[in-house]
């Protein structure tokens, strides 16, 4: 009990971090599942949201709202651009896509840092989000708690869309069997383009929401891309539920794990990931 009590703050923080990663990575895993697209420019879409937040947030709720709308819209446009550019590469496999999207990430990163300056940019969230609250004898940053609430709501809404709407059914069907979808009269390519746009929008949204956690700066695109790939592969390609579990696990490794084993902190994430993947690739019948 004492151990739990002492580590409650990082544990909660891990949930916040994990849910943020989930929102950021959900689009990546669906793009994998529906279109078999390996999108290495996904981290750049997140930073589009972050830079929008830096430009538009001025400490007011109105500014934050504006940033949320603009960041989401801009990243959705980025997603549409990716859909258009990857469409001709459908038959050429992951490596051609990797070359293209990595190139786009390099170009996007250069343009963003040229436009916004080289450093880590400040993001002024409303004062109410900057403080901390005392809960059960511990001090929690308000932003992290708000992030948990918003991200959980987004995850829930996403689940509803996927399971209860026609569009969601099409997406799930495309993950399972694209040919069947085309037999039903829907072009899986359109589903896939829609997923890239929606996934881009989610990544941009995460970039605004998560600006106080992984803020806009020169290294953030790489950080988000790497963590998202970890989440997507750990969760099983195309599996949204798996991504959620993996994201929270990664969040906890990066917060709670780092506090519990500070000496191993630099190795922790990749050792845990390699371990999990090796264990899974030994299980017969499950191959990612």
């Amino acid at each position: 009990m004492g151990l739990i009590d002492a580590n409650l703050v990082p544990a909660v923080d891990g949930v916040a971090f994990g849910l943020l990663l989930f929102v950021a990575a959900a689009g990546l895993t669906l793009a994998f599942g529906t279109g078999d697209v390996l999108n290495l420019a996904h981290g750049t879409l997140y930073t589009v949201g972050g830079y929008s937040a830096a430009a538009l947030c001025d400490g007011t709720w109105r500014g934050l709202l504006l940033a949320l709308v603009a960041g989401t819209a801009a990243a959705a446009v980025g997603g549409a651009l990716l859909a258009a550019l990857t469409a001709p590469l459908r038959r050429r496999g992951h490596l051609a896509q990797a070359l293209l999207t990595f190139g786009l990430a390099l170009i996007g990163g250069d343009l963003l840092s040229s436009a916004a300056g080289g450093g880590d940019l400040p993001v002024a969230f409303p004062a109410a989000l900057n403080g901390s609250v005392l809960l059960a004898g511990h001090r929690f940053p308000v932003h992290r708690l708000a992030l948990i609430a918003v991200a959980a709501a987004l995850a829930g809404a996403g689940q509803l869309v996927l399971t209860r709407t026609r569009a969601g059914a099409l997406v799930r069907a495309t993950v399972d069997d694209p040919q069947m979808v085309s037999c039903l009269g829907t072009d899986p390519r359109r589903v896939h383009a829609g997923v890239l746009v929606a996934g881009g929008a989610l990544a941009g949204l995460a970039g605004v929401l998560g600006a106080p956690v992984i803020g806009p700066g020169p290294g953030s695109a790489d950080t988000v891309l790497l963590l998202s790939l970890v989440v997507v592969v750990l969760g099983g390609l195309g599996s949204v539920g798996g991504a959620l579990v993996a994201a929270v696990a990664v969040g906890e490794v990066q917060t709670l794990g780092v506090v519990l084993a500070p000496g191993l902190a630099p190795y922790l994430l990749f050792a845990a990931m390699a371990g999990a993947l090796v264990l899974r690739s030994r299980t017969p019948g499950r191959r990612a």
Binding site: V233, P266, F270, A271, M273, A274, L277, V278, S281, R287
Partner: peptide, 26 residues
């Protein structure tokens, strides 16, 4: 541990190995 995996899983296992070695070197 590498040759059991295929596709993206192999990509991520090798990535993890690379990062672990680079971290250890640092």
């Amino acid at each position: 541990v590498v040759v059991r995996a295929r596709g993206a899983t192999a990509l991520m296992i090798t990535l993890a190995l690379g990062e672990l070695v680079a971290t250890a070197a640092g």
